[in-house]
């Protein structure tokens, strides 16, 4: 089990939220939105790999 993935996702989330707040307070709403979107895509890329691994395992185990 790769516990590090949990911390990686949480770290990205916290960094994105801090950046989002800083950019929002300084009046750069568009950049804040883009930062949030980028963070989302980065985390999505991590999660998609894990989901793919899970589906491969299920396919192999249950002969799907």
């Amino acid at each position: 089990m790769d516990i590090e993935l949990i911390f990686r996702i949480a770290a990205v989330g916290i960094i994105v939220s801090i950046l989002n707040q800083v950019l929002s307070r300084t009046g750069r709403e568009e950049q804040a939105t883009m930062t949030t979107l980028t963070g989302l895509v980065v985390v999505l890329m991590m999660v998609v790999q894990k989901i793919s691994e899970l589906f491969d395992l299920v396919k192999g185990l249950f002969n799907l």
């Binding site: 089990m1 790769d2 993935l5 949990i6 996702i9 949480a10 990205v12 989330g13 916290i14 994105v16 939220s17 989002n20 949030t36 963070g39 989302l40 985390v43 999505l44 991590m46 999660v47 894990k50 989901i51 691994e53 899970l54 395992l57 299920v58």
Partner: peptide, 23 residues
Amino acid sequence: VLMKQGKDLSVLLIVAVCAMVLC
């Protein structure tokens, strides 16, 4: 913690944890 900032990343974290535990 993530839920307070926005729900999107917290849902992704839930998906990742579920996938890992299922694996």
